[in-house]
Amino acid sequence: MTVVIIGGFLLRIPKLSILEHTARNLYYHVPMWFTMLAAAGFSAYHSYKSLRTGSLIHDIRAEEASRLGIFFGILGLVTGSIWARYTWYVGQGIWWNFDPKQTLAAIGVLIYGAYFVLRSTIEIPRIRARISAAYNLFASATLPLLLYVLPRQLDSLHPGAEGNPAFSEITHPLMRLVFYPACIGFIGLFYVLYTQRVRVAQLKDQLAPQWEDD
């Protein structure tokens, strides 16, 4: 992880028009997304398990995964928006441009926000687990439609969209040497945070006075 961060700042990158040194952001911005997707996947899977088995440990896992999903999602939005501000919109001062991927990510963050609001309103852990898992799965089920609808409505600035070079054409082999470990590193960081948080939440749960189930 440390090597990736140092490498991201120091290694030589190919000079491209517009992008120039901001391309270093590739090492941080893109892995954030992969991490958010991984977190969403974890969270949906554990929501499903929680409905199936009814055990609270899966609920804790789903909760912590979506908390970290929000965290990385916001980081990705912030890094992406700064990146766009200083490349595509230099001189225009636009921070937000309704790119499909940006919008999708923002909606993802909104859904997880709603998920936590829902959780906070239910007090009995067993019911909270069931209800929030149902919402999580319901929201996840509608996401593919969004993926289908949005690109037709909005123009994209991301690589691979119309008129933009694909990812493989603009990346130098040396950049990939940093980029791939960065992806693995961020997902690894997510996994470490995730397991630690789950452990803490579990311990808190054991120490807290048990709820009388009705």
Binding site: I107, L110, I111, G113, A114, V117, L118, Y135, F138, A139, T142, L145, L146, Y148, V149, L150, Q153
Partner: peptide, 13 residues
Amino acid sequence: VLLFPILIPLLIS
């Protein structure tokens, strides 16, 4: 709060 993020594909169409 729960409904609006889910309804975006519906609204667009």
